[in-house]
């Protein structure tokens, strides 16, 4: 019986050997039955991706193209399967977006392609795939990551959607007029906002919950920025659309409330170090609509100021706000038809869509900038909680 000499760390080559018949068990334990809130909570971020890649490395190392193919195919299909089953759970989708991207980065970082090796240690270069070029599989995995990203946005939108109008428009914090709805409106979902009324705070807490979940899962910072930008776009678009459809929202005080809410959202971005991710800019139409509610709307000079201020609003949107505008009190008159004509004349040669409402379903195209990892594969140890005892470190 061979003496079990403990191998020193440097003897491992960062691969995991497994028998072909154990492949189904591998994807079952590592993908299909892994609970993001359970075992996965205290894993190192991206561990499933590293484990899958180390298995792939061994199949490549022994020059078994069939084993490489079947592992990649069952990995991809298992991820798709779990997302079909639990695709409405933000944690699950975020977890597998982070791991799919990490797997994709590993395929690049260890592809042997110079372009992806700039930040590698010499040790990491030794771990490059030796026999197979998986460029075509990288494209498939990138397509999968795009699908998962779109699903994540849908997930997040379903959670945020019911909060936006209440939190950004209806709930008033400035004049101290409490807009608490009767408790009958209590939401059933287990999400953050379980009180009767969604407030701006509910939105901010939910944004923070999304953000910390993605960080905990090891999602690429560049990807988190794109998700946050998309979240802010949805918040801005839904808020503006409701403003444009509701007379009761077009008042001087509502303009003030919106500007306050926007400043809180910007504060949140600053707090998370996300001021440059483009999220703030997506709120520009809403910001300008709020300003439009507060500026003077009488003279030619006022008209000129409005036209130069409202660059992110279409003419239809500007005219709509002016038509819906409700004076502060009986001393203030409604916006005159003549004034609105002046605005329309000034803006007639603008080439823009006649659209009134923003497209709340628009998703910015996503990119996955290459993000190599400094993690040394040979040091990775597999927690027993993953039930992967049939894998052998090589």
């Amino acid at each position: 019986h061979p003496v079990n000499i403990p191998r020193r760390e440097k003897d491992f080559q960062g691969m995991l050997e497994y028998k072909k018949e154990d492949e189904l068990k591998l994807v079952k334990n590592l993908i299909l039955e892994l609970k993001p809130r359970g075992v996965a909570v205290n894993l190192i971020p991206g561990l499933p991706a590293y484990i899958l890649f180390m298995c792939l490395r061994h199949a490549d190392y022994v020059n078994d193209d069939q084993k490489v193919r079947t592992l990649l195919t069952s990995t991809i299909n298992s991820i798709k399967k779990i997302l079909k089953k639990r695709g409405d759970d933000f944690e699950t989708v975020s977890f597998w977006l982070a791991n799919t991207c990490r797997f994709l980065h590993c395929l690049k970082q260890y592809s042997g392609d110079e372009a992806f090796m700039k930040h590698n240690t010499s040790r990491q270069n030794e771990h490059s795939l030796s026999n197979f070029d998986l460029a075509e599989y990288r494209q498939v995995i990138s397509d999968l990551a795009i699908q998962i990203y779109q699903q994540l946005i849908k997930c997040m939108e379903n959670i945020l959607q019911p909060m936006i109008v209440s939190g950004m428009l209806e709930h008033e914090t400035i004049q101290g007029v409490s807009g608490v709805k009767p408790t009958g409106l209590r939401k059933r979902t287990s999400s953050i906002a379980d009180e009767g009324t969604y407030t701006l705070d509910s939105i901010l807490r939910q944004l923070s919950a999304f953000h910390s979940t993605m960080c905990q899962h090891g999602t690429d910072p560049e990807l988190i920025k794109q998700v946050v930008k998309q979240q802010f776009y949805i918040i801005g678009a839904v808020t503006l659309n409701n403003l444009l459809l509701r007379k009761d929202m077009c008042s001087w005080s509502k303009g003030m409330q919106i500007r306050y809410n926007v400043s809180q959202l910007e504060e949140w971005l600053r707090d998370k170090g996300l001021m440059t991710c483009g999220a703030k800019e997506t709120l520009e139409p809403l910001i300008q609509a709020a300003q439009l509610l507060q500026v003077k709307k009488k003279t030619d000079e006022d008209a000129e100021a409005i036209c130069s201020m409202c660059q992110a609003l279409t003419t239809a949107q500007i005219v709509k706000v002016l038509n819906l505008y409700t004076p502060v009190n009986e001393f203030e008159e409604r916006v005159s038809v003549a004034f609105i004509r002046t605005i329309q004349t000034r803006l007639r040669d603008r080439c823009e869509s006649p659209q009134l409402l923003m497209d709340t379903k628009m998703i910015y195209p996503v990119t996955f900038p290459f993000n190599p990892s400094s993690l040394a594969l040979e040091t990775i140890q597999i927690p027993s909680s993953l039930n992967l005892g049939f894998l052998t470190r090589v």
Binding site: D65, V68, R69, L72, T73, I76, N77, K80, G112, L129, S130, N131, F132, D133, L134, A135, E136, Y137, Q139, V140, D143, L144, Q147
Partner: peptide, 30 residues
């Protein structure tokens, strides 16, 4: 592997083709 020997490009099915392969496998083993 001598660095000079290029890696063999593995042709990959598309996501959709993979899904079809997966469905047919599942039908064979209910």
């Amino acid at each position: 592997r001598p660095p000079s020997r290029p890696r063999i490009l593995l042709k990959a099915p598309t996501l959709a083709e993979m899904e079809e392969m997966n469905i047919s496998e599942e039908e064979e083993s209910p």
